[in-house]
């Protein structure tokens, strides 16, 4: 499997570390919503098909990447920096205000 790191180009999967399901939504830090925390910490999607995943280029530039990988074929349809837009807080749940 090759993952194309936006910094380093196509690199073999052995250079990367899987860092989990990229669909997880971390509640706001002060949130007391235990269901939301529980979902974030324990619930994982396990699709047969395209899956949003976080991979770290641990043997390279160490950036975290959002990778869309097909779990049936290992085909990777997109890779992007997990950082994305640095000012965005959209990844926190909007409805989950502290």
């Amino acid at each position: 499997m090759l993952i194309t790191c936006p910094y380093c180009g196509p690199r073999d999967v052995i250079e990367f570390t899987y860092q989990g399901d990229g669909n997880r939504q971390r509640p706001q830090p002060a949130s007391q919503n235990l269901d939301a925390w529980n979902a974030y910490v324990y619930d994982r999607l396990n699709p047969a098909g395209d899956h949003n995943e976080i991979w770290q280029h641990s043997g390279g530039c160490r950036a975290h990447l959002r990778v869309v990988r097909n779990t049936l074929t290992h085909e990777i349809s997109s890779t992007a920096f997990a950082r994305g837009d640095h000012n965005s807080v959209a990844r926190h749940r909007a409805e989950d205000k502290p």
Binding site: Q19, I54, Q56, H64, A82, G84, S88, R91
Partner: peptide, 14 residues
């Protein structure tokens, strides 16, 4: 190290 990098990169890029 990986834990800190993950939070800086993925959770709190700001």
């Amino acid at each position: 190290m990986q834990h800190l990098e993950y939070f800086l990169d993925v959770i709190w890029p700001e």
